[in-house]
Simulated assay, not measured.
Amino acid sequence: MRLILVGPPGAGKGTQAAHLVAKYAIPQLSTGDMLRAAVAAQTPVGVKAKEVMDAGGLVSDEIVVGIIRDRIAEEDARNGFILDGFPRTLAQAEALDEMLEANSLKLNAVIELRVDQSKLVDRIIKRAADAQAAGQPVRKDDDPEVFKQRLEAYNRDTAVVVPYYEKTGLLSVIDGMQSIDEVTASIDSVLQGLDEKV
């Protein structure tokens, strides 16, 4: 099962990906997580990415595509994967298609979590407060101002991948404002209708 989760920051992609990882035993490939790991390890990519991420920007296609290309070649991604936070741009979507085609692979589905963006800032403020209450570090991108910049970047760059996948017939739209369990059930029902493709 090869899936892409699309939706603005704060839409719940990470939460739903965790469910899908458990259900299908495939890895969640979150570019955000991979980049944060690279930043923590102070790899060359991490150092480059840190400045951009701290400013609330998006790292270059070249860096992200390189990370994904290496990652999907790993053993645990052989039976599929969930892409979360990628592709972020039309160029990345096209690069992904080329990459998969070169490896005789295809996507099974693209799931968009559609949300009321006016309510996302409140959701992010709550997420930051919950993290603090649990004694966990608050992500830099959970700062409301940084979050608003990320939302603007999503609307400017990433929203264009939705019609791209709609044309391919791979896109399913899920109401991301439902409860977590309802969103999970909606995604499960979409995926039940798909045959796994190798």
Rank of each mutant, 00 (worst) to 15 (best):
V64E: 02
V65H: 09
G66E: 06
I67M: 15
I68E: 01
R69G: 05
R69T: 14
D70P: 04
D70C: 03
D70K: 15
R71Y: 03
I72T: 00
I72N: 02
A73L: 07
A73C: 02
E74H: 11
E75Q: 14
E75R: 15
D76L: 01
D76I: 00
D76N: 12
A77T: 01
G80T: 03
G80W: 03
F81D: 08
F81M: 09
I82H: 04
L83I: 03
D84G: 01
G85T: 00
G85I: 02
G85V: 00
F86P: 08
R88W: 05
T89F: 04
T89I: 08
L90Y: 00
L90A: 07
Q92N: 09
Q92P: 09
A95N: 11
A95Q: 11
D97E: 14
D97F: 00
E98M: 08
E98A: 14
E98P: 00
E98D: 13
M99G: 01
L100F: 09
L100Q: 06
E101I: 02
A102L: 03
A102R: 13
S104F: 08
L107S: 07
L107C: 10
N108Y: 00
N108M: 09
A109L: 07
A109M: 04
V110W: 07
I111N: 06
I111H: 07
L113N: 13
R114A: 14
Q117R: 15
S118T: 14
K119Q: 14
K119S: 12
L120P: 01
L120W: 01
V121L: 13
D122R: 08
D122C: 01
R123M: 10
I124E: 09
K126D: 13
K126G: 08
A129S: 15
A129E: 15
D130T: 06
A131Y: 02
A133P: 08
A133L: 13
A134H: 01
G135W: 04
G135C: 02
P137F: 07
V138N: 08
V138E: 09
R139S: 11
R139K: 11
K140N: 13
D141K: 06
D141F: 06
D141Q: 10
